[in-house]
């Protein structure tokens, strides 16, 4: 169990923005970097890659699961496309280890700052919103569960 207090969602977003700023606004470098991030994502067990865990609204296939450890949320994900896997890894970096209420209250702004729509296109950007929605749904479910449990 991870007991250390994670950095704030805002701080991690700033870190991502700073990372992308090193890429000289070059679309190819950004795409390659995103793919590289995807390659580093911890693997998801095959048995979790079920139709039930597919995020609806993505053109690529994205599987997403979440678990609550103490009062913190942890996500696991995979995708059949490398870029989408990289994109979901950004969200996992931001949200893993946060409290459900912090995820629910979060306002993600790093996408605009890194010019995401320009290098991944509108369709994938829509899919990205679907991933965020699904992660917040999990957070809401965990928050509700914790409230009922207490």
């Amino acid at each position: 169990m991870n007991n250390e207090t994670p950095r704030s969602i805002a701080a991690i977003q700033d870190e991502i923005i700073a990372d992308f700023a090193l890429l000289d606004d070059d679309a190819e470098m950004k795409v390659l970097y995103v793919m590289e991030l995807g390659q580093k994502l911890p693997p998801m067990p095959d048995e979790d890659k079920t139709d039930e865990n597919i995020v609806k609204g993505c053109q690529s296939r994205v599987w997403l699961t979440a678990r609550l450890e103490g009062d913190r949320v942890y996500f696991t994900a995979d995708s059949n496309t490398a870029i989408t896997k990289g994109l979901v890894s950004l969200l996992i970096r931001i949200f893993n280890g946060q409290k459900p209420e912090a995820i629910l209250a979060s306002d993600l702004h790093f996408m605009n700052a890194i010019g995401m729509e320009r290098f991944i296109g509108t369709q994938r950007t829509n899919g990205f919103s679907a991933m965020i929605r699904q992660m917040k749904m999990y957070a809401l479910a965990f928050k509700t569960k914790m409230e009922i449990g207490s």
Partner: peptide, 14 residues
């Protein structure tokens, strides 16, 4: 081993 979407996106970047 490479999904067509990834290839399309990479080529667009070029």
């Amino acid at each position: 081993g490479i999904h067509p979407f990834d290839i399309g996106q990479m080529l667009d970047a070029r």
